[in-house]
Structures are given as C-alpha cells and as structure tokens.
Design a protein around this nucleic acid. Structure first.
Lengths: 110, 110
DNA sequence: AATGTTTATCGTAATATTGCAATATTAAAA
DNA sequence: TTTTAATATTGCAATATTACGATAAACATT
C-alpha cells in the first residue's frame, strides 16, 4: 500500500517521527524562527513574513499546532501564536539523548 | 501545484527541514536507534530488526544515506552502515541553537 | 447594517512518500 | 562455474503533502 506502518514501531519512535515531520518543511522552520525572533507572541503578520499564500500559511500553522509545537489563542479578529515550550522540550529531550549516545561511541570504523 | 517552494527560504532553513524529513519516519528512527545500539557498525541484519520488507528497508537506508545521516561501505556481499557524526552534529547544532533561544524568552503570554 | 480585515476551511491539482513483489546486482561459498 | 546470500533497483498502487483560489467565519470599524 503506501501508508506508514506506525503500529509496528514504538510509541517513542512514532512521537519523534511526528515531531520531526512537523518541522520537516522550510516554511514551518521559518515560522518557528519568526516566533522565536519577535518579542511579543502576538503574530498577526506571519503571512506577510512568508513567500506563500495566506491559505498555505494557515495550513502550515495548523500542522504546527496539531503537532503541539505552537499554541494559538483567539484575540479579537487576530490570533496569538506562540511556541509551546513543552513540545519543544520533548524534542530537545530526545535529541539530547541521541547525541549523548553518539558521543559515547567510537565511530571510527567507516 | 504541490511542490515545496524551497528556493524561497534560506539555505539553513532548507538544510534543517531536509534533515528533519530524513528522521520523520518511525522506521528511520528505528534504524538510527539500532545503529546506535549495536557495538559494531557492521549491520547486515538490519532487515531482520524491522517489521518491513527488504526492499522497503533498503529504501529507508537510501534516504538516510542521501541525507548524510549514515555512511555505508561495501564489504563483500554485505554493507557496513554507520551513523555519520558530522550530519548528526549539524542537527545538534541547530537544535541547541533553537533551544537556547527558547530559554532566553519569557513565554508566558499564551 | 454595511464594509473591511484577518484567519480558517474547502476543493482541487500537482507532487512526494510509503510499501512491496519482482527482478537485478554483487560477491562469497560450494 | 554454479549456487547461495545479501543488498539495490524497478514498477506500481495507495496514501500523504503542498499549494492556492475561492469561500466562509469572526470580529472591528464605519
């Protein structure tokens, strides 16, 4: 078929893969970087910051939100988007673990 | 259309997105974890470690190799696969930068 | 109430990914 | 040389992603 066999892998493996997928697009990286750059987390001008149509940006924001990497609150006719620290910490935890394992190895065989 | 507009984003954004995409599948996470787990980097039994057909595993290995995350040397009729430290360090560098930016922020507005 | 602004959703087309059977390739072993 | 074993490639079908125009929804402004 063609659908990922997620049920054959561990929960942790699927979690990390999902988080990685959420940031596996330059537009979503750009969105995260922008959210980190601006002082205030009110970000009604994200669309103007990206070279994509409004509908496309909205779709990318939705994916980041579904992945839990950002949070959004309604504020009048604007939306307040922020980084979600919890999810980013989860990403961080995994990568730190990965990198730590790496450093313990003597990978000079190839 | 449907193709990513990679040329509208920075080189760094595209690099990170590509690396993230390479690990955005549980099978490829499982492969990396297995490569980290085994003592020796000769890994001719990766196929048996995964719940996927040989052709599919080979394809995932190819993607990891294209992304530069693993290296492979031909050794007789087997292949020696290893983590590529350089690429993992690149991933690490980016995430450390991202997480560092996060900690400097006061993200309590949402 | 009518208008303008901002964000979300729908519908659709183009492209990419996933998975596997079948087959090819490569080199060791018999 | 023939056989065996391991990995790669091809071809195809199913599914997912990306992008955007059109439209809807929500609210502020006039």
């Amino acid at each position: 078929m063609g659908a990922s066999k997620t049920d054959h892998f561990t929960k942790n493996q699927n979690t990390i893969a999902t988080l990685a997928k959420a940031i596996a697009h330059p537009a979503r990286i750009a969105i995260l970087e922008y959210l980190l750059k601006v002082d205030n987390c009110i970000c009604g001008d994200i669309v103007n910051e990206l070279p994509l149509a409004q509908a496309t940006v909205s779709q990318h924001l939705k994916e980041l939100k579904n992945a839990g990497l950002i949070k959004g609150n309604i504020e009048g006719n604007a939306i307040c988007y922020c980084i979600d620290e919890g999810a980013v910490k989860k990403l961080q935890t995994y990568f730190v673990a990965l990198f730590t394992k790496l450093e313990l190895k003597n990978l000079n065989c190839c």
